[in-house]
Computed example of a mutant assay.
Amino acid sequence: MDASSSCRRTLPADQVDLAVEVFRMLADATRVHLLWALIGRELPVGELASHVGKPVPSVSQHLAKLRMARLVATRREGVQIFYRLENDHVAQLVTDAVHNAEHAGPGVPGHHRSDRELRALHTEAGA
């Protein structure tokens, strides 16, 4: 669909309000890190806290907000709660935001690099 044939329907106010809430949730670096970490997998709070370098209570508060905004879902296994993205749209939204941000930096954005370049980039980042 090109610009001349784009959708012109009026959005219901409640959908606009929900979209604004999603953007509000994405307006926090810790929450973006958490959502990014959950793309394609589920993780318990402790691993997420370690991943983002924040204390478990802080991460739990962020996850509660993300859950209330329907961006993450949970699954209990014994005493442990696992978090995952609510749906593929959340993964796409976060991925698109990160890829858009990569275009603001110098050089070739990471998502435009070859497989070999990406492996080297991730090896450097992990070293």
Rank of each mutant, 00 (worst) to 15 (best):
A104R: 13
H51S: 09
D28Y: 06
L26I: 03
T30Q: 14
V72W: 00
P106S: 15
V16N: 03
A29V: 13
V79N: 09
T30K: 10
G78P: 04
L85K: 02
R76T: 14
R31W: 06
S60Y: 03
V79K: 12
L18I: 05
F23Q: 10
E102N: 15
R113Y: 02
V94G: 00
G46H: 08
T74N: 06
G53D: 07
Q61W: 03
M1K: 06
R67S: 07
K54P: 01
R113Q: 11
V94Q: 00
V56N: 06
A13S: 14
A27I: 00
H112R: 13
Q15K: 09
A37V: 00
P44L: 03
V22L: 00
L34E: 01
A101R: 13
S50G: 15
L26S: 04
V52M: 07
Q80K: 13
A104W: 11
V94M: 00
D14C: 02
S58F: 11
P55S: 13
R9K: 10
A125L: 15
R41W: 02
K54S: 03
S58Y: 14
R9N: 10
G78N: 05
E117W: 10
R75K: 15
D17L: 12
A29E: 15
C7Y: 13
R41D: 04
A27Q: 04
R84L: 09
D2K: 12
S4L: 12
S58K: 13
R119C: 08
E47M: 06
A120D: 11
S60R: 09
D28Q: 08
D17T: 14
H99C: 12
L118G: 08
L48S: 05
L18H: 08
S60M: 05
V16K: 07
E21N: 11
R9C: 10
G110C: 06
V20L: 15
L35R: 01
A101M: 12
S5F: 04
C7G: 04
E117F: 10
T95Q: 00
H51E: 09
E21I: 09
L43Y: 03
Y83H: 15
G105C: 11
S114F: 02
E42W: 15
L93M: 01
Y83T: 05
T123P: 04
T74H: 04
M68W: 07
A91I: 00
A73R: 02
L66G: 02
A3T: 04
P55K: 15
L11G: 05
V20F: 15
G126K: 08
L66I: 04
P57W: 14
T30H: 10
A127I: 08
P57I: 12
V52W: 07
R9H: 13
M25A: 13
L18F: 06
A127L: 12
A101I: 10
E42D: 15
V52A: 07
R116E: 09
G126I: 05
A13G: 10
I81V: 13
G40N: 02
A91C: 02
V98R: 08
A73Y: 00
L18C: 03
V94I: 04
F82H: 07
V94P: 00
V32M: 11
M25R: 09
A125W: 12
H103P: 03
A101T: 07
R24A: 11
V32Q: 06
R76D: 13
A13P: 12
L93E: 00
R75I: 09
E124W: 07
L121N: 12
Q15P: 02
S6E: 05
H103I: 09
Q15D: 09
H112S: 11
D28C: 09
